[in-house]
């Protein structure tokens, strides 16, 4: 019952979010600030994790392929596939849901409990539009690039792992990467990332905007927001995969 109510309130929130911004200048300043806070500042962690996970996936695959009949280029192929299909979009987005989601809830929640949202309303600003729409634009347009970066660095990390461990030859790895390239899979991953980016911007905003109480409640709301964002991402991943790949 409570869930249905929350979904209703979330939908009503989105209606206020998607209004025409009142002052273009104020709005675009906010968009650029969000791109910096939510996007640019996440490049480091995404790059770091993708590079090393790519390496680990390649090493694991190599270690499990002792049988000499299995072609060696399978290592590059498997690393590429897992990076493109699941790691770069779902896994990276789950990490961003944790990092960015808690930031969004706590920053909006703090604005709520310290009356900054009231202050915006007094100045005649539609606070939902001003606070949430720039976040949606920033994540929806920026996160696909993070996903591309994750794909690239993950595959690159696998190649570096081959050189570092001597478990497979870089030449075989590259042949594996070039094998059977399907652009549609990249598109599939990017489409997923756009949906997830939207969820990462809006679900934590919802939890922050409607928080009541003080800093303790803001902390609790952040935890809840991250959990729910991840749950919804995992669910939609399942349905999107069915829709797009079958």
């Amino acid at each position: 019952m409570n869930y249905i109510k929350s979904i209703g309130a979330y939908t009503i929130m989105l209606k206020s979010v998607f209004k025409k911004p009142q002052k273009r200048k104020i709005f675009w300043e906010a968009v650029f600030r969000e791109i910096d806070d939510l996007g640019v500042k996440s490049i480091g962690i995404v790059a770091f994790i993708s590079f090393f996970i790519g390496g680990v996936v390649a090493i694991q695959t190599a270690l499990n392929l002792e049988d000499p009949i299995i072609p060696k280029d399978l290592i590059g192929f498997a690393t590429k596939r897992s990076m493109i299909l699941e790691f770069s979009s779902t896994f990276v987005m789950v990490i961003l849901a944790g990092k960015v989601g808690s930031y969004i809830t706590s920053s909006i929640g703090t604005m709520r409990v310290t009356e900054q949202i009231d202050a915006l309303e007094v100045m005649g600003i539609n606070s939902l539009n001003y606070l949430v729409l720039p976040k949606i634009l920033a994540t929806v347009f920026f996160y696909p690039f993070l996903v591309l970066l994750a794909m690239f660095l993950g595959i690159f990390g696998g190649w570096v792992a081959g050189i570092a461990t001597d478990l497979f030859k870089p030449g075989d790895y590259i042949a594996g990467i070039q094998l059977d390239f399907e652009p549609y899979l990249v598109a599939y991953s990017l489409i997923k990332s756009v949906v997830f980016a939207f969820l990462i911007a809006t679900i934590p905003s919802y939890f922050g905007y409607y928080v009541k109480g003080g800093s303790l409640e803001v902390g609790r709301a952040s935890t809840k927001a991250v959990v729910w964002t991840i749950v919804v991402i995992i669910f939609s991943n399942y349905f999107l995969t069915q829709m797009l790949l079958s």
Partner: peptide, 28 residues
Amino acid sequence: DLGMVFQGSALFDSLTVEENVMFPLKMF
């Protein structure tokens, strides 16, 4: 035509003093 000073000041944390005070001017 309305100005409000909130109980806890309610300044925007992410903006400097100057940007805070300029905000209503930009809006109106």
